[in-house]
Design a protein around this nucleic acid. Sequence first.
RNA 1: GCCGAAGUGGCGAAAUGGCAGACGCGGAGCACUCAAAAUGCUUUGCCGAGAGGCGUGUGGGUUCGACUCCCACCUUCGGCACCA
Length: 828
Amino acid sequence: MSDATSPVENEYDVFGIQDKWLPVWDDLRPFASGNPTDKRPKKYVLDMFPYPSGDLHMGHAEAYALGDVVARYWVQKGFNVLHPIGWDAFGLPAENAAIKRNLDPRGWTYENIEQQRSSMRRYACSFDWDRVIRTCDPIYYRWNQWLFLEFYNKGLAYRKNSMVNWCPSCQTVLANEQVVGGLCERCDSAVTKKALTQWFFKVTEYADRLLDDLDTLEGNWPAKVLTMQRNWIGRSYGAEVQFEVEGRSEPVTVYTTRPDTLFGATFMVVAPDSELATELVAGAEAGIQAEFANYLDIVKASNDIERLSTEREKTGIFLGRYAVNPVNGERLPVWTADYVLSDYGTGAIMAVPAHDQRDLDFARTMNLPVRVVLETEAGDPAVTGEAATGEGVLVNSGPLNGLHKADAIAKITEILNQDGKGKAAKNFRLRDWLISRQRYWGTPIPIIHCDKCGEVPVAQDQLPVELPSAEGLDLQPKGTSPLGAASDWVNVACPNCGGAALRDTDTMDTFVDSSWYFLRYLSPTSTEFAFDPQAAKDWAPVDQYVGGVTHAILHLLYARFFTKVLKDLGHVDFNEPFTRLLNQGMVLMNGSAMSKSRGNLVRLSDQLDEHGVDAIRLTMAFAGPPEDDIDWADVSPAGSAKFLARAWRVANDVTSAKDVDFASGNKDVRKAVHLFLREFSANIENFKFNVGVAKIMELVNVLRKAIDSGCGPADVAVREGAQELAKALSLFAPYTAEDMWSKLGFGPGVALAEFAKADESLLVENSIVAIVQVDGKLRDKFEVAIEISADDLQALALASEAVQKAIGEKTIANVIVRQPKLVSIATK
RNA sequence: GCCGAAGUGGCGAAAUGGCAGACGCGGAGCACUCAAAAUGCUUUGCCGAGAGGCGUGUGGGUUCGACUCCCACCUUCGGCACCA
């Protein structure tokens, strides 16, 4: 044992304190939240759970550093904070890695989880380790299956055949949300379309609520995320209009947002891959049928990348059929073209080339007529090639003539309604969520297919439907689920009739797992509930969610959808899962995302070995606003380490005894400490972590100066400051803070030490520096009493030599006095 | 193309409409040292010897006063992208 004067005890030893405190915390368990007698108010702080693909990286380090600031802050504000962690453990990367290395995805996944868990412990994350969940555990995914059946029984899970997104490389279908710019989110292959029977969740039934409830999150979620969600849901208002088609008994319904332009329709277009197109062309002459078949082949083969290429020529063919405009009886040729989508609206449109750019482009390509029905300031669309989409007055439109756009929409909708030819309607860009996947490493869908009985849900008491062992299964992607080959597993007796039946062999999209995991943390081991309803009442919804903006649409939309369904099913009593959301930025290196192929990868473990955990965490928080990206090339972990040593020395230099009354301490130092307390809280609560750290640095500078050249290390105000410093630093640098706390004479657990309240009586100012501006420019400043009168302040300002000089020959036009802070003089 | 956000020193950044550049990185200088490292202190927007002037993407506007509010433009980034 070294004594108190040995150099080792008086030096800041970054790695020594890590080794010293880690085992102490393991025993102390400061962040356990499960004590039922805990009377502190509750707060639920949640970090997005990681995918276990290897060890933690710099991005995790930023996310968990910032999430920890929030979680630790509320603990030290006296709250019982629930801050859990788990693993989003199912999914393609594990499966692909398993195939590549010829391993079971299980082993790979659990090894990575252990690796990450150990790194999180070292990183001093303030997680409650009693509540860990892993979505690939049967005890977890059993409840995915339960939820699926809840949805199924409500009619919210259904199976249908449709054209779906297909990734030819992953050999699986993808949800709309997983197609990014026409590419597979996971592997960047060009996504194509394929007709398949797949499971969907009926998100569209909740489209209105998902959109409207975003208003309740205003101010608490980043505006950017709210906008992205609104755009994604994409609600539009318009009308459905019925067109008779010659030779067809049923009219064809089209959707339009511009029913006011109905008199300007000059043709109709149906989506080539729609049933309607196939049906209509069947009644056409043979030549057209052949042409159509050819066109449809071309359309099906094209992927989204080709479709997205800009300035693409419009293509399409005439179907040889005619529709009738319901308002004027005109015959409109019916075309098919791939610019009309089969899965939006009704898959058929009325084309008004004068007032819709796409219709105009098509009309000009195919030499179809263009008729203006809305007079605007723009030129003739047929000549300029620019559709007139602005405001104007209706012409050539019978009863609508002379009306403005909005009035015309109302009027025509009314007319159509009366005549039974149409009605007001709305549409969404949002599509139903395709949740089945043709891969192994996911939650089996708890449905049994029986030739006699059809889809039969697995009984509740038969859950979970456990994923069979991967042993002996060929996981190579081949377009159908590998589970189909597990014959012992697939072949079952129908629960209904007892006859031979087959299990559904698809697995669920892993976004199902993450859509409700925040509830599972509340009772992570329950075999009775997905989540304990009482615990949900106590803790949910999440007060503060922290995670990357990459999940701005998919995960957050799905989790919001689940929450609304669970509310309707009576399982929760709130509408929105995440009350407040913080999106942290990314960690870059030299301006771009880190990657092995770019050669700019910075390894977290290397950084931790070089600078220590605390310096890395502090650097993450201090680099800038949390929403902004951090370029690791621009920041200085060495500078952070230097600062931590400086802070540590302050605590080490304190010589006064603990448990003293601070009232006798140096007034100036005390004032600085209490001003710090006030500002620091505000900064943290407003996510200005970088400014909060700057305030800590200022406090250290004040204390350093007080010790070296002020009141000295024995003054109790220095102790007061050092104690609050250790507490505040604990949010960013838990090891250093714990060691400082120990130097100050306390037992382990600075993370549980509550902040002192700012003593406002110490912050009362009796003088202030007043400033004087002449024509908006600062010309003088001087100290004045806080209660100075406006007249006195003005007199002082005008008497100032510098002010006189600035005014010079000019005459004073106006003097504004804001006592005691400011005098503003305007001249002319 | 449409929607949105952002432009402040050499760099990361701060600033309820009221002292622009807090805090830090980097730089310069000094002290301690035989020396170096570490540490501490001073200094550091630009131009100018100085007085002083100029400065928050550009141009206007509102205001006694604008990084902050309004309009237009430029640039960068993000989202959506044939959604009728």
